[in-house]
Nucleic acid binder design. Structure first.
Lengths: 126, 126
DNA sequence: GCGATAGTCAACCGTTTCGTTGAATATTGA
DNA sequence: TCAATATTCAACGAAACGGTTGACTATCGC
């Protein structure tokens, strides 16, 4: 089992990529098959599979094979340690859920209607 | 100005390194000179200076020259966007400050009494 | 059994990251 | 002015990252 610090390394590194954050946002709505996760993005299925591997290694998702389809499921508990770490640096007021919904919608809209190009994924205004 | 997504990239990437997290924890206690920040770590001063550059690029710290000393100051507001992003994935209960204090103490103790070797920094039980 | 579908694996490539070392710059204090 | 102090810069190397392509495995439906 990983140390708490090594676990944080994996979680934060996983979150540092916009494609992976978009995947998490998609999975927030419902479990999805790998192919369906990949659909909005311009990158190859293999690349998405790698991203899912990174997310799984960080514990942020689990994957379960049913027949020939592998279902991806969000595991929000993996964010707990990271969230605890971050919170104490800011003493932020409680989350404004409306604001977050809008932000999330913009990330999802970016993924679904105009798939991430590599440029957009690394620096664009998704 | 960076897009919200690009800003998250920088912040999460900055947090993905245990040395940088240890630096942030040190700055949580007080502003520090670069040399003093570097002191607990085994790596070179230049390496620490680079870490500080990464943290500054992410907006997590600011640096101000006073004489020949550069003072580093934590900027917790830079964590707000990342915190908002994360919170909605978990709906976590309010932060347990005692638990966090203990965790933070262990990270600081690790940095101060047994400086990070490269091995420890990347996977060790700091 | 066979073709189609779902997904991973392996090898490769260009870029970024994290560390090093040595030189350069800026400021201080004598 | 000069040596010491504080910090960054530049060049380098090893390893990791994010992408590609082609081959492979597993399962479904006929």
């Amino acid at each position: 089992m990983l140390s708490a610090s090594a676990q944080l390394d994996l979680v934060f590194a996983a979150l540092a990529d916009p494609t992976r954050r978009a995947i998490l946002a998609m999975l927030l709505e419902d479990d999805m098959a790998v192919t369906d996760v990949a659909h909005p993005f311009e990158i190859s299925l293999a690349a998405v599979s790698k991203h899912l591997g990174v997310l799984a290694d960080a514990g942020l998702i689990t994957r379960e094979r049913r027949g020939r389809v592998i279902w991806c499921k969000l595991e929000p508990d993996a964010l707990r340690g990271a969230s605890v770490w971050m919170q104490a640096f800011g003493q932020f007021e409680p989350l404004d859920l409306d604001q977050f919904e809008r932000f999330l919608a913009s990330e999802l809209a970016g993924a679904e209607t105009a798939p991430l190009t590599p440029e957009e994924a690394s620096g664009g205004d998704i």
